[in-house]
Design a protein around this nucleic acid. Structure first.
Length: 217
DNA sequence: AAATCTCACAACCGCAAGTCT
DNA sequence: AAGACTTGCGGTTGTGAGATT
């Protein structure tokens, strides 16, 4: 039988409620079957995304803090665009959120940093270096490939003003200290491999008789 | 006040990897 | 071992809200 036309676009509150309740019963798996069982005219993929990015418990929905921003910059430098890896160090955040934040905020900032590196050696530049945790601009090289720098016309004279909006005023030493504080605390400090340890406390969804009987239908 | 632009975010899409049968 | 199915990831797009002209 031909399946019903699937709904797309923004989710309604009733859909959210229905999804949340069905996930509470069935757990976070078999999204296609779950979508059908729920009666929602949504794809399993869409249900999964909605759950992961919005409905899941313990998600932070507020603004990204300065601390988180610094961590994102560090981790992006370390892992590249491996958002799933990066997000593991940012509890309560989603990969989509981090990805969007990177694209709309940090990528631009990194670009300005890159431009600044290729330009004069201003005090702003050295502050930026500290925020990127390196003494040269090589760390940003990999980023620029995908940045389509030519598409952006950055008014160089306004760089410092714009940069001063976001560059924390900490010194190089401070930034290093903070870097270690964050990364070591999160067990991801690459400077001190002996500190490194995997944290695989991934939650295991419960799977009771009720849910398994539904799948058997 | 209206039109236009920019930004931020939610959601979609295609693909690859993993798992199941 | 192989094909089907499911899940997860990263890139991209659509849209609403706020800012600017």
């Amino acid at each position: 039988m031909q399946q019903e036309k699937l709904r797309k676009g923004p989710w309604f509150e009733e859909e959210d409620e229905r999804l949340a309740s069905i996930v509470a019963i069935l757990g976070e798996r078999r999204w296609d079957a779950l979508a059908k069982a729920s009666g929602l005219r949504r794809s399993g993929k869409s249900c999964r995304l909605r759950w992961m990015n919005y409905l899941r418990p313990n998600l932070k929905h507020g603004h990204i803090t300065e601390d988180e921003e610094r961590l994102i910059v560090q981790l992006q430098k370390q892992f590249g665009n491996k958002w799933s890896k990066i997000v593991k160090q940012l509890p309560g955040r989603t990969d989509n959120e981090i990805k969007n934040y990177w694209r709309s905020h940090l990528r631009k900032k990194t670009m300005i940093y890159e431009q600044d590196c290729s330009g004069s050696n201003t005090s702003t530049n050295s502050e930026l270096k500290s925020s990127f945790g390196k003494d040269d601009c090589s760390s940003a090289d990999s980023l620029t490939d995908e940045m389509e720098v030519s598409n952006y016309s950055i008014d160089h004279s306004s760089n410092e003003t714009r940069l001063s909006d976001w560059i924390p005023s900490w010194t190089y030493e401070q930034s290093q200290m903070e870097h270690h504080m964050y990364l070591c605390r999160l067990n991801i400090c690459s400077c001190y491999p002996q500190c490194f340890s995997e944290d695989n406390n991934s939650s295991i969804s419960t799977w009771d008789d009720t849910s398994s009987s539904i799948w058997e239908q």
